[in-house]
Design a binder for these strands. Structure first.
Lengths: 158, 158
DNA sequence: ATGTGTGCAAAGAGTTTGCACAGCC
DNA sequence: GGCTGTGCAAACTCTTTGCACACAT
């Protein structure tokens, strides 16, 4: 499946932050740094937003073909636990992952036909959200805003 | 996660509309009306929004214990195809279904402390959504907009 | 040395499908 | 009677887990 995304690189400042988050978490839990984990983590950092396990594994195997997919699952679970990655399920049956700080400032527009995912940002919606929350006496922590529809290509194909 | 909902009944006007949508679709495709289909469809109409296959099947089996789950899957696929139901995947691994007109214009504000759910409507957000969709060439089908935060009571209690 | 991490394959969970029989039109 | 629908079980897909061995600390 095709995933459109504009973000493929992440600036090294953030990456340093995430690397240290991970190290701390691993130190605290007595976890070990292995070749596979380092490779998977760095590959994840270089991946487009919303990578699936399979996409990530195939990238990883370009460097080391013996890595098993269970290791990728386990490593991404680890990244999720320590707040470096977010797990996203868009309903195509795959779990996708993105860097944690990507999640804060964009939402998703998803094609129900072909699964294409487009990211969008809309400050006005953010403002309206705050207003609604305030009206109901809430202090916002976070939100999930996904729009489902049919993309241009799929409309043309129909 | 449990999905709380306030909607359990649907007014009979809409149901008539949906029943005829279904009949037409079945007539057009030469599909047949069977005891199982009628039972499953009517049970679905009486179910809370966001029923899962399993919940629906267990309700159906109270009336006829010999119904198989494949039939429920197939019938809900049918309802989805003819626009009577919407399929929703919230990420807990289950597919849930709701009457098409429920996928309406209210969204949810959820307290992360006590679980209170407030429904809200914000026409301006709807407009912005349409604008964003159009900008990316999408035709919107539906959306999920959930805001998580701390409600007034829980703030006071902290 | 100790115990975590890895790869493999098998097990799980939810959904779909192939098949023989049941039953609508 | 012809063809669709059903129930069952097996197949599928994605993810998790158990196990024996590899390897960090």
């Amino acid at each position: 499946m095709k995933v459109k995304t504009t973000e493929t690189h992440h600036d090294s400042q953030h990456l340093e932050h995430f690397r240290s988050l991970l190290s701390e978490h691993m130190a605290k839990k007595g976890l070990r740094s292995t070749d596979q984990r380092r490779l998977i983590v760095e590959t994840f950092f270089l991946s487009p937003s919303h990578v699936s396990i399979e996409e990530l594994l195939s990238q990883v195997r370009k460097q080391d073909s013996r890595v098993g997919y269970a290791t990728v699952y386990r490593t991404l679970k680890l990244l999720t636990e320590c707040g470096v990655a977010y797990e996203r399920k868009f309903g195509d049956g795959l779990t996708r992952y993105e860097l944690a700080d990507d999640a804060s400032h964009h939402d998703h527009l998803i094609c129900v036909e072909c699964g294409t995912i487009v990211e969008f940002e809309e400050p006005e919606i953010e403002l309206l959200q705050e207003r609604i929350a305030k009206k109901h006496g809430f202090v916002l922590r976070n939100h999930k805003h996904e729009m489902y529809g049919v993309c241009g290509e799929c409309q043309a194909r129909a």
